[in-house]
């Protein structure tokens, strides 16, 4: 052929809306930033250390697994960094380095890579890691003893532990405004309620997380807590308290919404969020753990494939092709 001008063949569509996995990851990290920055400001260098170590370890584990499994390097998509960041946000600032290394190993290798990498994990990797830590080194995630050396102007008793031990009166001096502004002990990136809400709103409006899940989760935490509260106001805290303490907010906006382990159809999303919310409050109020978010979401992760079978009927026609 004299004319060597050739064109690129590909299948329709020839346009793309420009979204990508890496953009999604970076937006998630951006949204987490307010909460993270307050954590660093409150807990100082140790918090920064935990965050940096966790993010870099998660990425290194990912790279090692890529090499081991002979897959193209995937750390560029930012997903490993997100897992590392979220994992660190859940930890107290005083977490020892070896726990961070081990935790990120669990998250990235056991939580994600052995299932086949991004999109194949049945459970939220960061939650798998934190759950293993909770079960293996119980005291490490006891925020009261972990943060004992910090002295702030606000009440330094972990609110969910206080209510579990002493009933609603023990937490009467946490004000809603204070909780929103991060005046409570807890994980590095879990205490700044307002920051998490801003981040969550950003992610919802930009469509990076599925709003149905976040909102149904929060609504159901609220309603379930309200029912408990009405039944025995002395024993059970008010619903707003439950919304703003522990892992509720980070759970709603960053953990329950993890793509691979949550449903995508409308009704299942609502059910998933709602059931996770109910479980959270049940575990908190009558279960064995101080905070229920981790196990509630993990349990719903397990139920997800089943839930997501509830879906609308597809359109009734196939196009004939010869």
């Amino acid at each position: 052929m004299p004319d060597q001008k050739l064109f690129i063949g590909s299948h329709a569509p020839y346009w793309h809306n420009g979204s990508s996995i890496s953009a999604k990851s970076y937006h998630t990290m951006l949204a987490a930033l307010p909460a993270v920055v307050l954590g660093i400001w409150q807990y100082g260098a140790p918090a920064l250390g935990v965050l940096a170590l966790s993010v870099s370890c998660a990425m290194i584990w990912e790279l090692i697994m890529n090499i081991a499994m002979k897959r193209p390097a995937s750390i560029g998509d930012g997903n490993a960094a997100v897992i590392g960041l979220l994992f660190a946000m859940l930890l107290p600032a005083t977490t020892p380095w070896w726990a961070v290394v081990a935790g990120t190993f669990v998250a990235v290798v056991i939580g994600k890579q052995i299932f086949g990498g991004i999109g194949c994990n049945p459970l939220n990797p960061a939650l798998v890691a934190i759950a293993i830590l909770m079960l293996s080194w119980k005291s490490m995630l006891d925020f009261n003893s972990a943060l004992v050396n910090y002295e702030f102007s606000f009440n330094m008793v972990y609110p969910l532990a206080a209510i579990k031990g002493f009933g609603a009166s023990a937490v009467s001096d946490y004000s809603t405004a204070g909780l929103l502004m991060g005046q409570q002990p807890g994980g590095i990136g879990t205490t700044f309620g307002l920051g998490l809400i801003i981040g969550g709103l950003y992610l919802m409006l930009r469509g990076h997380i599925r709003w149905e899940i976040s909102l149904s989760f929060l609504a159901s935490v609220f309603v379930t807590a309200l029912l408990f509260n009405l039944s025995d106001p002395d024993k059970y805290a008010n619903p707003v308290f439950h919304l703003l303490t522990g892992y509720t907010l980070i759970g709603a906006f960053f953990l329950a919404t993890e793509d691979s382990s949550s449903p995508v159809n409308f009704v299942p999303m609502l059910l998933y969020g709602a059931l996770a919310g109910i479980l959270t409050v049940l575990i908190r109020n009558i279960g064995a753990f101080v905070d229920g978010v981790v196990f509630a979401i993990l349990m719903m992760n397990v139920a997800n494939p089943l839930l997501d079978k509830i879906r609308p009927k597809a359109m009734g026609k196939g196009i004939k092709h010869a």
Binding site: L6, F7, I8, G9, A12, P13, Y14
Partner: peptide, 21 residues
């Protein structure tokens, strides 16, 4: 058009790419 561009019969969502003009 140049070598390496794309040429499509039809529109951006459903057309068919051509390898040659």
């Amino acid at each position: 058009t140049h070598h390496g561009d794309q040429l499509v019969l039809g529109g951006p969502m459903t057309g068919h790419a051509l390898y040659s003009e």
